[in-house]
Design a protein around this nucleic acid. Structure first.
Length: 277
DNA sequence: ATGCAGGTTCGCG
DNA sequence: CGCGAACCTGCA
């Protein structure tokens, strides 16, 4: 077990933000996460994060994963006056942009198109349980559990389109199939993607069949940490249309637009949607 | 039962 | 180019 002080962090908000599909609430204030080859349990009491791993694992994996070296207070302070955005931040300032695995984000966000979050999660778990390695993890109680990792590119490259279809992917089966081949072929090149600038890497990603501008932006933001990447989905489009009268607000083209997008997205889904805008 | 969902592609004007 | 329709599947 290891504990660490954090600011601008709220596990619930992150888990429900829609940027990751393998983080789940498992009761008693505890969330489970499977990423980078590990199973983690984590809980939070005020500004203290408690993790089921040791210090070493925290330092080499989870510290980066939770983006704990980025100063979100500064990001929030840098906002130019905007009532709606500030209102959203009151509600969602515990969201951080997770640094996730490029390959996993590529595939899961291709799956995400025209799907609800529960449905995306279901597909992802099916892929993991059928094609991913089994690993052992430990709960807070010290109990050993087994779980599946997200399949590697090599593992998924052995799966046929028909088998993919049977995982509930629908028409996305071909996209996944082709993206997998693309990734295997470009594996060495992908390692240097974090050195390329945002527009460059976005245009490369959009060359993949099934990756349009929204998914490309999600990959840039959630895997490559380009904080200026601002995915515009139907929720964001509604915000532009209804709140900003069809004119894209300045904060959406800011250096930190992706962070702001997450704040607004979470706020919109949790508050506005339930009251009927 | 019909319609639609956190998107992309294709084909049309 | 800008627009609408179709694309699988599951769930209201």
């Amino acid at each position: 077990m290891y504990s660490v002080k954090v600011t601008n962090m709220d596990l619930k908000q992150i888990a429900e933000s829609g940027q990751c599909f393998r983080m789940n609430y498992i009761g008693k204030g505890i969330y489970s996460i499977i990423a980078f080859g590990k199973y983690l349990e984590v809980s939070q009491y005020q500004d203290t994060l408690l993790l089921s791993c040791d210090k070493h694992e925290f330092e080499i994996i989870w510290k980066q994963y939770f983006d704990l070296d980025t100063d979100y207070t500064a990001i929030i302070k840098s906002i130019k006056a905007d009532d709606y955005l500030n209102q959203a931040i009151q509600y969602s300032s515990g969201i951080r942009i997770l640094k996730q695995d490029l390959w996993e984000i590529l595939i899961t966000f291709i799956i995400s198109q025209r799907k609800s979050i529960p449905s995306i999660k279901k597909c992802v778990e099916t892929l993991c349980s059928r094609y991913g390695d089994i690993i052992q993890g430990y709960t807070f109680d010290g109990a050993m559990i087994q779980t599946h990792l997200f399949p590697t590119p090599e593992q998924l490259s052995k799966v046929t389109i028909n088998e993919l279809r049977e995982c509930g992917l629908g028409y996305r089966d071909v996209y996944i199939y082709e993206a997998t081949k693309w990734f295997c072929k470009n594996k060495e090149r992908c390692k240097y993607f974090n050195k390329l600038n945002y527009n460059h890497v976005k245009s490369i990603l959009m060359g993949i069949n099934g990756v349009g501008i929204k998914v490309a932006n999600c990959i840039c933001l959630f895997a490559l940490h380009h904080l200026e990447a601002c995915p515009i989905d139907t929720h964001m489009q509604q915000i532009i249309d209804k709140i900003y009268k069809g004119v894209m607000p300045e904060w959406m083209v800011d250096n930190n637009a992706g962070v702001y997008q997450q704040y607004v997205f979470y706020y919109k889904r949790n508050i506005i949607e339930k009251k009927g805008l």
